[in-house]
Design a protein around this nucleic acid. Structure first.
Length: 615
DNA sequence: TGACTTCCTG
DNA sequence: CAGGAAGTCA
C-alpha cells in the first residue's frame, strides 16, 4: 500500500504545502518523510512563497485574516439573504453552463412582467417594509465587524509587515478559507463562511494545525474566542432586531413579500445544489429506476427539474404543490397562486417539518417525517423528488447571512421570514406521480405502447391529472418506447450481422436475451408475468426492424416511422385490475420494505398472469 | 395553437 | 427518467 494514500486525507492536505519550501527554496533537501509528502502536495499547491521558516506563523495569521475577511465579505453580502453572485459563483464555479441553461428555461414561460432577477431587487421590493431600518442595522454591523477585524489583525500581527487587508492579500484570504473548506466538510461553510458553522470548520482546522504546532495554541484560541463571541453577539443583535422589525409588519406584509419574492423565486429555485441530485435520486433508484447516472440532475427534476418547472407552463410541480382547490387555475400562473395560500398553512407546514425536515438534505427525511401518514409515506419517494426543491432553496438562502443558531432562532420566532422565501410548501402537494405509478406504467407498457391521455386517466384514478402530470406520464411512455425501439433495432442488427435472412426466424421468447433486456427494464425484479401478447408485439417489432434494416431503409432519416406506425396500432387491452388505484401502491408498498418474497402473490394476480394474448 | 411524438442529451 | 428542441397533425 502506498503510504501516500494515507497522507491524502483532508487533514494531511492542510499541511501539504509544508514541504514545498524545502524543495523550492534551494535549501537542504527535505527529510525523507516530508519529501514523500511533497510528492502529492506539489501539484496541489504549485505556487509558493512560503519557504520562510515563519510560514507557520504567517499561515496562522493569514488564516485568521482570511476568516475575518470572509466574514466581513459575507456581511457585505448579507443585505441579500440569498447571497449574491460572487459568493454563489464561488460556491459553484463548475456549472456556469447549467446556470445558463436554467436561465434560458426560466426566460421562456415567465409572463409576469418585468423580471426581477437579482435578489437585491427583492430587497427593493420590500422597501417601506423596514428596509431603511435593516440597512441601518446592517451598516452598523458592518462597521462593527470592520473594527473588530482591525483589532484582531493588529493583535494577530504585532511583528509582521502587516499586509493590509485590502492589499494583495485580499483575494488570498477567501481563497484560503475556501481551500480549507473544500477539503473539509459542510457545504454550508464554503462561501458564506460567516456563521458559526464555518467558524467551527475553521476551528477544527486550526485545532489540527495547533496540535502540530502547539506554540500557537494560546493566542489562536483566544483570538478565535474573542472573534467568535463578538461576531455572535453582534450578529445576534442585528438579526434579532431585523427580524423583530420584519415580524412586526402588518399581516399583509407576508403576502406582499411573498409576491415580491415570487418574481425572483424561479432563479433562486433553479439553483441546483450538489446535494439536490443525491437526495433526489436515492429513493428513486432504490425503488424502480434501473439507474440514475446523473448525480446533480434531477431533478430533479429534476432534476433540477426544479429550475424550469416553476416558471414553465409544463412545470409539473407547481400544480401539485398547491391545494387542490387551486389546481384548476391556469397552470401558467403558478406563481400567482401561493399568495392565495393561507399564511398559517404555510407556516404550520414549515413548523411542522422543523429544522430536521426540510432544512435537511437527507433523502430519507420525508419518509421519516411524522407529519405524513402512512399512505403518504409510501408516496414519499415522489415527495422527496419534488419537495427537495423548496428545501434546497431554503438552505441556500439562509446558509449565507445567518448562522445555524439563528436559523433555529428564526424558527422559534415564528418563521415568517422563512415563509417569505418559500412561495410553495410541501403541504400543498396533493397528488403526484410516485414510483408506484411509474411501476404501474411500465407494466402497462406490456399492453399498450401508445396510451392516450384519456386511457391514462382511466388507469390512474388516484392521480390528480393536470397538464403537467399528463405530460409527465406521456413522457414516461415515450421513454419506454425509446428504450423498446432501441433494443429492437439493436437486436435486429445483431441478427443481421449473425447471418439471419428470414425475419420469421426472429421470435422473442421468454428465454431470449432481448426479452431479458426488456423485462429488466419494464419489470425489474421479474415480479410480473409478461403477457404473451407483448412477446408477439416484440417479435413483430423485431421483424419489422429486421426487414427495414435488411432492405437498407435505415439510410432514410425517417425509416423508423413506418415501424412506429405499425406498432402504434397493436396496443392491447389493459387488464381491469390496472384500473385499481391501490394496485400499484400495493406493489410498491410491498416492494419498499424489501420483502420481495411476498411479491409473488401480490403482484401476480390471476387476471394478469393468465391473461391470454389479446391479439 | 396545443397535443403528441421522436430524437438528443444529461 | 427528465428537459428540451424540432417536427407533425388536427
Amino acid at each position: 500500500m502506498d503510504p501516500n494514500s494515507v497522507l491524502l486525507s483532508p487533514q494531511s492536505r492542510t499541511f501539504s504545502c509544508l514541504t514545498e519550501p524545502s524543495m523550492e527554496g534551494g535549501r537542504s533537501p527535505a527529510p525523507p518523510e516530508l519529501a514523500r509528502d511533497s510528492l502529492f502536495s506539489w501539484s496541489q499547491l504549485p505556487s509558493s512563497g512560503l519557504a520562510d521558516p515563519d510560514w507557520f506563523w504567517d499561515e496562522h495569521i493569514q488564516a485568521k485574516r482570511a476568516r475575518v475577511e470572509t466574514i466581513v465579505q459575507g456581511m457585505c453580502l448579507s443585505p441579500s439573504p440569498l447571497g449574491s453572485g460572487s459568493a454563489r459563483s464561488r460556491n459553484s464555479p463548475c456549472c456556469p453552463e447549467k446556470a445558463q441553461k436554467r436561465k434560458r428555461k426560466q426566460s421562456l414561460p415567465m409572463q409576469q412582467g418585468p423580471q426581477k432577477p437579482s435578489p437585491a431587487r427583492d430587497q427593493g421590493n420590500r422597501k417601506g417594509l423596514g428596509t431603511p431600518y435593516m440597512r441601518e442595522q446592517l451598516h452598523l454591523l458592518k462597521q462593527q465587524l470592520r473594527h473588530l477585524q482591525e483589532h484582531v489583525l493588529q493583535a494577530a500581527e504585532p511583528r509582521g509587515p502587516a499586509q493590509g487587508p485590502g492589499d494583495s492579500d485580499k483575494g488570498k484570504g477567501p481563497l484560503r478559507v475556501k481551500q480549507r473548506s473544500g477539503g473539509g466538510s459542510s457545504p454550508w461553510t464554503v462561501d458564506s463562511a460567516l456563521h458559526q458553522g464555518s467558524n467551527r470548520d475553521l476551528s477544527r482546522v486550526d485545532r489540527h494545525r495547533m496540535s502540530e504546532a502547539p506554540g500557537f495554541l494560546p493566542s489562536g484560541a483566544d483570538l478565535r474566542e474573542i472573534l467568535r463571541e463578538e461576531l455572535t453577539r453582534a450578529m445576534s443583535q442585528t438579526v434579532d432586531s431585523v427580524l423583530q422589525k420584519v415580524l412586526l409588519e402588518p399581516p399583509g406584509h407576508l403576502v406582499q413579500a411573498g409576491r415580491s419574492f415570487q418574481g425572483l423565486a424561479p432563479e433562486d429555485r433553479s439553483e441546483p445544489s450538489p446535494s439536490e441530485g443525491g437526495a433526489y435520486k436515492e429513493p428513486h433508484s432504490l425503488a424502480i429506476l434501473p439507474r440514475r447516472a446523473q448525480p446533480q440532475t434531477g431533478v430533479p427534476m429534476g432534476h433540477l427539474s426544479l429550475a424550469k418547472p416553476l416558471d414553465s407552463p409544463r412545470y409539473p410541480d407547481s400544480p401539485r404543490m398547491i391545494p387542490k382547490s387551486y389546481q384548476d387555475l391556469p397552470t401558467n400562473c403558478p406563481l400567482a397562486v401561493p399568495s392565495c395560500i393561507p399564511e398559517n398553512q404555510i407556516l404550520s407546514q414549515l413548523l411542522g417539518h422543523g429544522s430536521n425536515g426540510h432544512w435537511s438534505d437527507s433523502p430519507l427525511q420525508d419518509s421519516a417525517s411524522p407529519s405524513h401518514p402512512s399512505s403518504e409515506s409510501v408516496l414519499r419517494p415522489w415527495g422527496a423528488i419534488r419537495l427537495r426543491r423548496p428545501s434546497t432553496l431554503s438552505q441556500q438562502q439562509y446558509s449565507g447571512p445567518f448562522t445555524a443558531a439563528h436559523l433555529v432562532k428564526m424558527e422559534q420566532v415564528g418563521l415568517q421570514a422563512v415563509t417569505e422565501a418559500l412561495p410553495f410548501s410541501s403541504a400543498h402537494i396533493q397528488e403526484g406521480l410516485n414510483p408506484g405509478h411509474l411501476k404501474k406504467a411500465k407494466l402497462m407498457f406490456f399492453f399498450t405502447r401508445y396510451p392516450s391521455s384519456n386511457l391514462l386517466k382511466v388507469y390512474f384514478p388516484d392521480v390528480q391529472f393536470n397538464r403537467c402530470i399528463t405530460s409527465q406520464m406521456i413522457k414516461w411512455f415515450s421513454n419506454f418506447r425509446e428504450f423498446y425501439y432501441i433494443q429492437m433495432e439493436k437486436f435486429a442488427r445483431q441478427a443481421i450481422s449473425e447471418g439471419v435472412t428470414n425475419p420469421k426466424m426472429l421470435v422473442v421468447l421468454r428465454d431470449s436475451e432481448l426479452f431479458r433486456a426488456l423485462n429488466t427494464h419494464y419489470n425489474k425484479g421479474n415480479d410480473f408475468q409478461v403477457p404473451d401478447c407483448f412477446l408477439e408485439i416484440a417479435s413483430l417489432t423485431l421483424q419489422e426492424f429486421f426487414r427495414a434494416v435488411s432492405a437498407g431503409k435505415d439510410s432514410d432519416p425517417s425509416w423508423k416511422k413506418p415501424i412506429y406506425k405499425i406498432i402504434s396500432k397493436l396496443d392491447s387491452d389493459i387488464p381491469e385490475i390496472f384500473k385499481s388505484s391501490s394496485y400499484p401502491q400495493e406493489l410498491f408498498q410491498v416492494k419498499n420494505p424489501q420483502v420481495d418474497c411476498m411479491l409473488d402473490h401480490v403482484m401476480l394476480p390471476p387476471a394478469i398472469s393468465n391473461r391470454p394474448p389479446s391479439q
